[in-house]
Structure formats: C-alpha cells, structure tokens
Design a protein around this nucleic acid. Sequence first.
DNA 1: TATGAATGAGGGTTCATTCAT
DNA 2: CATGAATGAACCCTCATTCAT
Lengths: 241, 241, 241, 241
Amino acid sequence: MTRENKAEPGLSDKAEECGEVACLRPQRLGAGQDPAKRKQILEGARRVFMRMGFDAASVNDITREAGVSKGTIYVYFNGKEELFEALCEDYRASMFADLMADIEHGLSGRDALVKFGVSLVTLITSEPVIRAQRIVIGVADRMPEVGARFYERGPKRGKALLKEFLDEQVAAGHLDIPDTELAAHQLSELFLAGIYRQRLFAAMPEEPSAELIRKNVIAAVDLFFIAYGPRRYQNGKSEDK
Amino acid sequence: MTRENKAEPGLSDKAEECGEVACLRPQRLGAGQDPAKRKQILEGARRVFMRMGFDAASVNDITREAGVSKGTIYVYFNGKEELFEALCEDYRASMFADLMADIEHGLSGRDALVKFGVSLVTLITSEPVIRAQRIVIGVADRMPEVGARFYERGPKRGKALLKEFLDEQVAAGHLDIPDTELAAHQLSELFLAGIYRQRLFAAMPEEPSAELIRKNVIAAVDLFFIAYGPRRYQNGKSEDK
Amino acid sequence: MTRENKAEPGLSDKAEECGEVACLRPQRLGAGQDPAKRKQILEGARRVFMRMGFDAASVNDITREAGVSKGTIYVYFNGKEELFEALCEDYRASMFADLMADIEHGLSGRDALVKFGVSLVTLITSEPVIRAQRIVIGVADRMPEVGARFYERGPKRGKALLKEFLDEQVAAGHLDIPDTELAAHQLSELFLAGIYRQRLFAAMPEEPSAELIRKNVIAAVDLFFIAYGPRRYQNGKSEDK
Amino acid sequence: MTRENKAEPGLSDKAEECGEVACLRPQRLGAGQDPAKRKQILEGARRVFMRMGFDAASVNDITREAGVSKGTIYVYFNGKEELFEALCEDYRASMFADLMADIEHGLSGRDALVKFGVSLVTLITSEPVIRAQRIVIGVADRMPEVGARFYERGPKRGKALLKEFLDEQVAAGHLDIPDTELAAHQLSELFLAGIYRQRLFAAMPEEPSAELIRKNVIAAVDLFFIAYGPRRYQNGKSEDK
DNA sequence: TATGAATGAGGGTTCATTCAT
DNA sequence: CATGAATGAACCCTCATTCAT
C-alpha cells in the first residue's frame, strides 16, 4: 500500500551515460528518477510553501506552480509531507553556499569577523530565509526530525563554520579564546541580537538595512574583542574566573 | 468572505453598566458580550491550539473543549483566525507575569542577573512557551500583526525589563554600560545562546535541564561582566576604542 | 479522530413526543438523529448502490440522489462503508415483511407449501432482491460480517419460517418428517432449483415468469411429498421407520 | 472513451502462419499476439483479482504481479474490464477439469452419486472457487455476459454432467426418473443445500469439513432415491449406511 | 513493439462557516 | 440569543489510461 522507494536520487551522472550527442533530456529514467522533473517539482513546491506555509499550501497549488500533474508529484514524493521534507533537505544543502563563498581568510581578524557577521546576518534575516525558518518552526511539533535536521544543517553548521574561523584566528594570535565552541555560540547570537527574533515574529516587516546589520555586527565584535581579543584589547583578564 | 460586524469588543467594562443592584449574573448581554463565556471559549481554544497548532486545530475541537456551541464561537469571534488573534492577545498579557514575580532587586548585581537570566531562559524554553512561539511564528506570514504583537508583549517586554534592571545596576555602580538598551539585547541573546534556536527547531526535544540553563546564564554573565562590569572585572578598558 | 456515536437509531417514536399538533418535522434533533433525513440518505444510497454496486457507487452520486450534502452523509454515517452496512441492516429488516404477509395457515398442507414457495421464489429472484444479493456477495470478502448478517436475516430466516410451517404441518398430520430443519433446507433449495444461481450470475436476465416459478415450486413439492408426504403420496414407504 | 481496435484476438492459430522453418520462438508477432505473454498477464491478473476483487484491484498491481508493463496489458486487452472478461473465459475453461477427473463410472449408482456429489460440493464451496464466484456475481450487473458465461461453463456444465450420469444410471436400471434434466437440477441443489449460500455470503467463514459435505450429500442422495430410486431403495432405507 | 512516466478526473473525507430553530 | 445540523468547497491522494521514447 505504502511506497518505500525513491532512495536518494544522487543520480546526477546518469545522464552522461547516453553518449555524446543530443543528450539534453535523458531518454528513459526510472519512476521519479528524472532529476530535472524532480527539480521542477521542488522549485514549484518551494515557491508555494514559501508563499503560503505548509498547511495552507495545497498540492493543487504546487501542481499549478510546478507545471506538473498531481500524479507526477506522487510518483516523485510519497505525499505532501515527504515533498516538504525533501524540499528542506535540498534547501539546507544550498543555504550556506552563499555564506561560504563570502568568507575570506586574508583579512585581519577583526575585519574578517565583521565581514563574516554581516554575511551571516544578511542571509539569516533575509526574507526568504526567514520565511523558510518560520515554516519549519511552524511544523516542528508535527515533524520534529525535519526541524532538527534543518537546525543541524543550518544554524549548527553556521556555528561550526564560525568556530573553525575562530580557531584559525586563535592560531594566528588574533584572538585568545579558551573555549572556541562556546565563543562561537555567543558570537553568532550577538550578531543577531535584537534582529533575529523580531524578524521571526514579523515584528520587523522589512529586511534589516545593511547599516543596521553592520552596526549590530560591529557591536557584537566589539563586545567579543573586549572579552576575547588579544592583550591590547583587555588587560588582566587572566586573574579572574 | 470577510465579515464586517462586531466592532472590537473591548468588553472588559461593559458589565459594570448595569448598575449597582442584582448584577451578580447579568441577565441580558449583547451578543458576544459575556466575559465569562468569552473566557471559556478562549481557554478551550488555548488548549486545542497548543495541542494541535493553528491549522490542525478544528473549530469543532475547540467547540468540544470549550463546551460551547459553534454558533457561539462565531458570535464572539469572527472566525478561527480572529479567535486565534484574540487568544494571542490574552496569552501575551499573562505570559510574563511569572517572570516579573521572579525578579528581586535586593541581590548584588551579578547574582541578580544570573537569577533573572535563569528565570528568563527557563520560561522561554519551556515546552508550552516554545509551542506557543512555534505556532505564532508559523502563522506570522499570514498574520504578521499577531506575530508582531506577540513579540512586543513577549521578548520586547523582557528586554525592557532587563534594560530597567541594568539601568538600576548602572545607577548603583555595579555596572558600567554606555548603551543599556543595546546591552540588554546582547545579554538576553547571550542568556539563550545555543539553547533557544535548538528548542524552536525541535533539535532539543526536552526542556533544557536547570544545570544547562544555569551554566549558559553564567557564561553569559561572565562575558557580560568582562565587557561591562566594574573596574575589578576589567582593567585598562578605558584606553581602547 | 474517529467517531463512535450514532448508537442504533431505533428512534422511530421520537417524533411522537412533541405533542399532537404540527409535528411534521421535529424541532431539534441530535447530530445524525433526524430519522427522516436518515431515511432520505438511505433511500438515495439504496438507489445508487442498487444501480452501480458498492465500489462503482460514489458518495457524490449518493449525495445527488439523496438530495443532501456530502457533509450531511458523514454526519449520519461514518463513511461509505458504514452507510452501506446501515443500508443492509435496514434492508434486511423489511425484506421478508412481504413474505410473511403472504403466508396463510388455513390451506391444506400441499397448497400452502406451493403458495409459500411461490412467494419465496418470486421475492428472492426478483430483480431488486437479486441485485441486493449480488452486491452483498460482491463485498463479502471485504465485509464478511455484512454478508453473514445478510444471510442470517435473509435466507436463514426464510428457512426458519419454512421449518415452523413444516412443524405445523407435521403436527396437523399433513406431513411426516423426521428432521424438519433438514427438510426445510432441502425444500427451500428445491424451490429455487435451477433458477436462483442463473439469476445471481445474470444468466437469466429477466425475472422468472410466474409460470416458471409455479412449475418449479410444484416439482419441488412433488418431490418433497414423495419423500415426506402422508401415506397416499408414497408407495411402500409404509413398512419402514 | 471506448476504443474500437484490436478485433477479437482469436490468436491461437496465428503463430502457425510464419511458415515451416525455425518457428520455435516466433521472431515477430503482431501486437498482442504472443500467447505466452498473454498467459503471463492473465495469470498475474488472476492472482490479483482473486486477492482483491475487481474494483479494488489496480492495473498497477496486475502489472507488478504479471511482470509486464502497463502498456503491454493495454496491447493485449482493451482495459481492465476486458482483461477481467478474458480471465473469466480462461478460468471457466479449467474450472471443471478436476471435477471431470473425479467421476468414475464403475461404481454402483448410489455410491457413484455420493462420490460425485462430494467432489462437486468440495470444489464449489472451496475458498478459491467461492471467491471467484463472489467476484463474478459482484460485477454481474455491470458485465452480465461475463456472469452468464461463467454460469454456462460452470454450474450449467456441472448439471449437464450430472444429467448425463443420471441418464446412464436410468439406462442401467439403477434409477427411475421421468425428467432427468429436472432431476439433475434438483439433485445438485440438494447437494449444496444449506452450504452454498452460507459460503457465498461469508456466513460460513471456513471451507466446509469433509464430514459435513459427506453428510449433506448423503442426505441429498437419500431424498433423491426415495423419489427416483428403484423400488428396492424406497423400502427399507434403514439397512444402508 | 514494449515500456512506464505522466496525466487529471475523480475518489472518500474534513471542516470553516451559515442559519433555521 | 444560543445552538448545532447542514453545507459544499477544498483537502490529499489514487488510478485507468495514454503516448513519447
């Protein structure tokens, strides 16, 4: 009755097999195996879910938006929920690509942190990313594993990234941090301080201005450097605690 | 589709009008004017929305839980959405009552901050409050004003509270903060660092232990005091920046 | 989630309570409690199921035929299947009413048997009754209890009736039967011999003629009386038993 | 909706056309002309229809069970309904093979009848045969010709067989029957008396025991011999069995 | 020719809302 | 005024059939 198939596509190289000519569309793929169609469905679903949220979005809407028939959706995904999960999986994969691209390691510690922070906050508080987070949070009761994995591949990865960066900075002598993991947590929250929750609750209707973001990030970095910066930023921290 | 009647109840003082005699149970109230019944509906709705979320909750469920008829609900509220909005309004009002009660002003700055932080984090990351936040965030796209007001009466008020407290501490010479508003933002995010988002995304399925909360709050206060504490916590901060 | 209510209506006398005047439609009935509406739904369902069979009949068809909305059907019955079961229950109840009415006890044994047999065969092989049997048999795999109860209230009751009649005849000395239960079985099959299965399989497209029925019943009674009749109908049987 | 092509396959002799050489496996057959594939489809369909009934069986199920593609099924048959009809045709052909094999003509009349009756009842009330009958009866409204032909090749043939046998017995002086056709009808109904309908309606969930069948058949033969047996059977029934 | 991916009408069921009582 | 039976649009999903490959 229920279907169990559809094992992770990962078939991105299937198309190559067909030779060297006229291979624009693969001739024959297993049911639910055409990556282009899958992409097409996910893209439509993404738009609809983003616009309406999970519950308010109907499969018919997705059908219309994706330009595929209802049946096709059910060939590629076992239902609305699984479609949503797959979408989240896909989305998470691409989410931090931009962020990664933004990181530069050549800058001095402080400037690099500011740059990183600005990128992070800009991304995370951007309208599409905020909407995505709202939707996932909204269904987290019913689909906790979706929420959990979203967190793991999203915020958690962001923090891991930041920790790595901090480790580098510590190694380079730009920072002096006993526990970089904790510090990464603290810094990433400080970056978002006062913006993130407002955005999540729609208390800040527009994306924050670059100015606001910059200001917030700099305040965070200031605070951070007072605590963890090299000696010239702090004296005698060593004797307490 | 939408209806126009029933201009904002604002019914809190309506009952008094009936005079000074035999007013124990008002004999005749305008449609949707009995505050007890209104309370009863909201209470049922609260339980159902908390259990199922907004979309999954059906008006019938609420009807059953509240012990009123469907028609009655539509007399008091223009629909499910409006009922939800009213509920949020009510809920927010009571949400921080516990928190307020927890604040004591007699403690030394540092201990008071820790105590406040523990209360704040315990409340905000508790299962019911997290569920409430999830639901509100989940519908924030469709009902931004609900989200916004939830934020205003929730987190914002918490931060205002914290700012007040910091102002007191600064005045008492326990802290040295140039911008207490910003500091309040920063501190409250630091309190929740690494816990809040995990809870929201269901990446932390259980309420955080008292231990974990304490540890997190203390780390936050430590960091905070390095930056903003009185001289004995920091030396030579004056010459930089 | 699922509904459990609707305990056997049997409320045919509910209407009487409301007094003696203007009682055409009961004022207020519980959900799914209005016998008139229930009847209306069952009547529509009966027509549709009879026309299309169980699977081919759609709830929409029933909706249309019964003149009620789809929601109403689901208030009175928990689904298509339960509606069908209720219909069977109702149907069985009325099925043998006609037959009962046809029985007369004043006739001589042989004529009475013939008359009874003709009534039985006429009823059982009539188009509506055959169609009903086909449908029930067709779903007997999925709904065995429906089939079983149909059998119990239908054929089984018919046979019980026949046994009673035979007992009377034996008591009156018109027949001499050692095991009236077995004899009832045998006689009722003989009545239907060669007709019933043809009808069931649609190998006999029209209802059998009165003539054919009479012929068949008389042949059955003849055979029966040779075996079980009083002395004058059989030869040489006298010395045994 | 309906299609007009594919005029009655009648493909049993088509293969011969290819000539006299190397025809072991025909290289090229017209669409829907390979009898092996046809057989394969029918076999899969048989299993699925038997398991699920007509309406509940999906073409996909048959596809899976038969190991052929959906398109192929539609090449060989014009649709689910036609496939079912073809299946019935095939099935009927093989249905009474077992029965035929069971008949022995060497026995004395009475014993032979009992043996025949037991075989008949065992077959007809067996689970697979009952299921097949239920399915055919269930769709007899929609496909009367299917039902009719099922009857003709099933029960009717059984009765013809019985008539033949009775004719033989009459010729041999073992029985004395004026109308063997009528008698065959009567006897075969008596064999099944009280079992068949219970089985059909699922009022008897298990196949009847050999004992019960034997008892029923003997009672039928007893009754039959009282009426139609030679003189010696009508007297002194007591001494046999 | 055989294939099975795609189609989309239609399946049973739910539910926010209305309105006669 | 409160009630809850009735509504029917919309829900998610299935499936017989088609047709490009």
